[in-house]
Design a protein around this nucleic acid. Structure first.
Lengths: 333, 333
DNA sequence: ATAAAAAATGAAGGCGCTTACAATTAGGGT
DNA sequence: ACCCTAATTGTAAGCGCCTTCATTTTTTAT
């Protein structure tokens, strides 16, 4: 292992100088810089970031906790973050929380032990208080897709209520009144908020909300299929169904097709998230765009600006969803 | 920042002993262990993994390079890896190579500078020689989804030729002879190999291969759509189309539908990868299963066994694809 | 009880780099 | 040529932990 020391000897300078040229800090004469550079090249020197981190107390590493790695949602989000961080030469240490408070805490702990300069957290099981206490402890963190008033500055989220509203409002606007709703897990904030938006839209348009038309799924495609079956089994009548995410919408479409109901002629379907495959379905899925990649990059910008002091990195705390019209919704007969 | 030293003083032992209880190495009496534990708890001690890494020359971190983060493919793969690594308390430092040799090298370099204990690489632009030289330099790495004979032990890949063969063979078996092929980027090994498999299947069944029926896409959905249009525009006649991945298959289905050709009645479609949304399409996409998550976990096992000396972690070097029958293929009229 | 073996602990020297601070050199003005 | 300031470099003390080796304590065997 070639060290800075060996380089310094070969170049005939002190190790401090070598460190300066590596980090481009302090001042060093052009001539000695070259001396050092060639010495490094000849020796095949490789900077030891671990040692540097210990000495400087900066790891240039951001810890990232997401519930899962599979699926296209988190990849898109992390992609947004990565793109922004790569230019700043920061790296991401990734961990999964599996929507389990215990695991989430362990992972956060592990990332902190690894001395990440900041954390980006998409955690769903851990309590608000826990996150608030971390912030009060001085941990630099951004919470994504979750809003906690007390640490609002550390949150970057989508207005899920508005998204839910937009979806159902669209169905109402084109004439539907009997609208079924397949909710996401209601113990998760976004699942709950999207449902709230749905209810507000109904209220705004003077349509009464009833539990009979809603089914609580778990954000997985299969639960969309089950949702439709359950609704039909309980005799619910509807001409449209709003789903809390695209996976469930796709599951719902499968069930509807099985039942011989055409989409959108017999029943309209609207999803939520606008994941990449939404446009591959046929008809293309009308949905609510969740600017997930943007959320990822906002989180990166937050970190760059707040933790590393880079300027010119703007970010917003609350992003807005918008309606994406494709082929699964139409006016009722 | 509470250090091991402070803990040792509070517990009335030496720092060496504290280190022993933290790492569970050496021997330490139960009583003193408890002493140390309570001291750590009272002081709110947090182990500094960076310092530990420097001293022990082990980071317990695996560097991971993938082309992109978005899409469902790499998330699934990394998910497989993560699951296996989490139990071993290893972490993943993730970087993207963007299929660009320059970037791929930089990222590998950065991960090495961070002293990752091992690398898992899904790189597509860098040369075989480069990877071989890394291995010869003593870098512990697994190459996934790519086979390089000279370092076959370090590779974990899918038999893409066989997959391509299986797909086209299926179409041939159910009676198709006019089979169009929408290839992936041919400068990528898997794109090329899948096409080779297609050609072998044709040859085996005595059907002549012709360039006229193949179109080179780029693995993106849009190029599937364009592929169909191009094929039709050039007057190609076919009753089935095999695609080098599911995204393109989905794009192809969209184009076929536009042209008024029913799937599978008028033309059969088969994809490759079996990504998660393949079953959401309608009809469900017949495809070749790419055990991507398994590849991810194999890579983890390789690392666990070879780098960390954990036993009982079996792994294979070449995984086999298999046919997944769903609704997009049927015999021609 | 006592010697020998085993278990438990402590002392101290790094791991490779950063970073005040001190020391040296170079540049400018008169 | 000489003094002052600014630009360069070197010195050395850590950063917090691991780990070998020596030392002390405990256990086992006789």
């Amino acid at each position: 292992m070639v060290t800075i020391k060996q380089v310094s000897e070969k170049a005939g300078v002190s190790s401090a100088t070598v460190s300066r040229v590596i980090n481009n800090t302090g001042t060093v004469k052009e001539k000695t810089r070259e001396l050092v550079m060639t010495a490094m090249a000849e020796l095949g020197y490789r900077h030891n970031v671990v040692a540097a981190s210990l000495a400087s107390n900066k790891t240039h590493t951001i810890g990232y906790v997401v519930p899962e790695l599979h699926g296209s949602f988190f990849g898109a989000m992390m992609g947004g973050t990565e793109q922004a961080l790569r230019q700043a030469k920061k790296h991401m240490l990734i961990a999964t929380g599996h929507s389990d408070a215990q695991i989430e805490k362990e992972q956060i702990d592990a990332l902190l032990s690894r001395r990440c300069d900041a954390l980006i957290l998409h955690v769903e099981a851990v309590s608000d208080e826990y996150l608030v206490s971390l912030v009060h402890q001085g941990v630099e963190l951004v919470v994504v897709n979750r809003f906690i008033g007390e640490i609002g500055d550390n949150c970057i989220s989508l207005d899920n209520v508005k998204g839910g509203y937009l979806a159902s409002r669209h169905l109402l606007d084109i004439g539907h009144t009997k609208i079924a709703y397949i909710a996401g897990s209601l113990f998760k904030a976004d699942g709950k908020n999207r449902l709230t938006g749905h209810q507000q839209a109904l209220a705004d348009m003077g349509v009464e909300y009833t539990d009979k038309l809603t089914y609580e799924g778990n954000f997985q495609a299969k639960s969309g299929t089950e949702g439709i079956r359950a609704l039909v089994a309980r005799g619910a009548k509807f001409t449209a169904v709003a789903c809390a995410n695209d996976e469930m919408a796709s599951g719902a479409m499968i069930a509807l097709r099985e039942l011989g109901r055409r989409v959108p002629e017999d029943v309209s379907v609207i999803g939520f998230d606008n994941v990449d495959f939404a446009s591959y379905l046929s008809p293309g899925l009308t949905t609510i765009d969740y600017p997930v990649q943007k959320i990822g990059s906002m989180a990166a910008h937050w970190v760059l600006e707040r933790v590393y002091g880079h300027t010119r990195h703007e970010y917003q705390h609350i992003l807005s969803p918008r309606l994406i019209l494709r082929g699964t919704t139409s006016s009722p007969e």
